[in-house]
């Protein structure tokens, strides 16, 4: 495999990760999965950023004392990615800390259920009737009992 093909594969990997993350964020309802999807998308963005300075015929930008025969890759994106990764770690740790508290308070991490509960609480605090839920079944039927699989409750 010659090197330009490798770059094609890496680039599609980066774009694929961003797309997978975006799908995950659009489709998931569980907050932990949303955080994981965000982490995947971030990995893709970091890969794209480091590829912005990649040259297939070049070596790492570290002087070893030996005479340099080949060009070196651009050092700037590598430094940027180092920064971006650490920022991502901080934000994810913060997200997990908040999830622990939300789970403790509401007993669920389902984003739609949480949205309804928060809406009810805000309206309750303001002393007004909560709005009709958009997910409410028609015909005055009661809500279906939420199905919790053993995997989710674990």
């Amino acid at each position: 495999m010659n090197p330009p093909d490798l770059i094609t594969i890496l680039i599609s990997g980066g774009i694929g990760l961003v797309a997978i993350g975006a799908v995950g964020m659009a489709v998931s309802r569980h907050l932990l999965r949303l955080v994981l999807a965000l982490a995947i998308a971030e990995a893709g963005a970091n890969l794209l950023l480091v590829l912005a300075g990649y040259r297939w015929d070049a070596v790492a930008p570290i002087l070893t004392g030996a005479t340099v025969t080949r060009p070196m890759v651009d050092p700037v994106p590598q430094a940027l990615v180092l920064t971006a990764i650490v920022i991502g770690v901080g934000v994810q740790a913060l997200a997990v800390a908040l999830l622990i508290r939300v789970k403790e308070a509401y007993g669920t991490l389902d984003i739609r259920e949480l949205k309804t509960r928060v809406e009810q609480e805000i309206c309750g605090a303001a002393g007004i009737a909560p709005p009709e839920s958009a997910n409410k079944p028609g015909g005055g039927q009661p809500y279906p009992v939420p199905v919790t699989t053993s995997r989710e409750s674990a």
Binding site: G21, L38, A41, E42, A45, L80, V91, L98, V102, L114
Partner: peptide, 29 residues
């Protein structure tokens, strides 16, 4: 508790925006 739940949503939307901004920086660079 409702502030925590609101913060989580804020964080997720903001995080997605950051990913896009990072892609934008990569494209420009």
């Amino acid at each position: 508790a409702r502030a925590w739940a609101a913060t989580v949503r804020y964080l997720l939307i903001s995080g997605f925006g950051s990913v896009l901004a990072l892609v934008g920086v990569a494209l420009i660079y």
